[in-house]
Write a protein that binds this DNA or RNA. Structure first.
Lengths: 238, 238
DNA sequence: AAATTAATGTGTCGTAAGTACATATTATGT
DNA sequence: ACATAATATGTACTTACGACACATTAATTT
């Protein structure tokens, strides 16, 4: 190392080391919801930390200096699911001092809704699996809290905004839609009242098609009106 | 510099520099709302950055390695207003790459509601002033966006949760309360319907007292029921 | 081809909340 | 005593919500 290099590095070092504030890392964690078998699922991975061996955790990563928070979330999503245009919404930032055993890491949580049937991915590798939300008892880090917070947000959203549709394929029957709502809210709904409520929102387009391959009377098929289709959600400017 | 010192510093430098992720700083910004003269106000300070000379900014600070996000927000609040037990709620985290001219800073925004009359503070020092929300055109950084986001959250909240009361003194008349709502929502409300709606919530306790020192018929005084008094808001384990 | 099955599709009634709107009441000031 | 300027309150209409029952249809079985 030349003297010049040394001086440069030393200067940089001084600058960095007195900025204690940079000793906090920031990550994003994605609560990726899916829907299958009338159950709400979430995508989890086996934790790679010793402290949490045997436990699952959400999908996340450190935010890189050259990407904004949403880019980081979309990167995590694309890396893990291979899907690009998905619904994603920021929920909350968790910053307890001791939330990460390896150091100070503040994390911003996003929730995401994806159509699980479009997701025939590298699932069998690397311990990545869909878990029924109702069956999850314990997660690594504070990820159970993050999951609960995101689930609450999702529940608050679905009656106000047409987001639940992101869990379904493009065409669906009202029965399927109701089952999605029941899975998310974890309650039974009255069919007639549910249909009235949905009709009132005017979110749906009647496709004049019917379900097929059923062993009973098929229902009509609907699609979410184009104007409500959310791929990438409006950015709050990052 | 001895060889030993050099080696130490170099080692530390290597360690830090390969941890690019720590090159992001994290801050909190507080949108501190107050209410005065039938107007919703927000506490702003003159920006100390050259790039924003002449502009005002929200109150914020870098998060210290040994404090969590909420502690940092309360610290900012206490430092600037001298008030301890205030309503504070996390709203959103803003992480655009270029949002801070001096470097990469991700900020978590909180909004806070305080009783402005309990706040006879060091206002005249250091360019700290209350500004009418409606008059604010431009702020430093992305603080206008943060303000708008927090204002929207506040507006969404006040009909659902008894938070607007934090802007008023302990005892207030229904007229005063309505004026607070009108200031926040920036609309006129019908007096009879407003009272019906508030009565329905069952938030208020009739104090059997009257307003005084008015030049007209005084109204009854009410207080928020104890069970709803929010000093420090429930932590999301933040 | 007729009957059965298992689901879809729809309507009513009572209740609760939202909105528009007008009159009586009361403490104060003259 | 009277005028004033605000408080306090009620009704009618409309809209949403929740509980609830029956007719219809396509597929399947007999």
């Amino acid at each position: 190392m030349t003297e010049k290099e040394l001086n440069l590095k030393t200067a940089a070092l001084e600058k960095i080391s007195h900025l204690d504030y940079f000793n906090i890392a920031i990550s994003v964690d994605c609560v990726i919801f899916g829907y299958e078998n009338k159950e709400l699922k979430v995508l989890l991975i086996k934790s790679d930390l010793e402290e949490f061996s045997g436990l699952y955790s959400l999908l996340g990563d450190l935010v890189r200096p050259d990407e904004d928070l949403e880019s980081a979330s979309y990167r995590v999503l694309a890396d893990r699911t291979g899907m690009e245009d998905v619904y994603l919404e920021q929920v909350h930032t968790f910053g307890s001092i001791a939330r990460h055993p390896s150091g100070r890491v503040i994390t911003t949580a996003y929730y995401s809704l994806i159509d699980i049937t479009h997701h025939k991915l590298q699932l069998n590798h690397n311990d990545l699996h869909w878990h029924s939300v109702n069956d999850i008892k314990k997660l690594a880090f504070d990820h159970k809290l993050i999951l609960n917070t995101c689930l609450k947000r999702l529940r608050d959203q679905i009656m106000e905004n047409p987001v639940a549709f992101n869990l379904l394929q493009d065409k669906f029957s009202l029965r399927e839609l109701q089952e999605v709502y029941e899975a998310i809210l974890d309650i039974k709904l009255d069919r007639r009242n549910f249909r009235k409520k949905i009709a009132l929102k005017d979110w749906l387009q009647d496709l004049n098609e019917m379900e097929t391959n059923l062993s009973h009377r098929p229902g009509k098929l609907y699609a979410l009106k184009k104007q409500y289709k959310t791929s990438r959600v409006r950015s709050m400017a990052g």
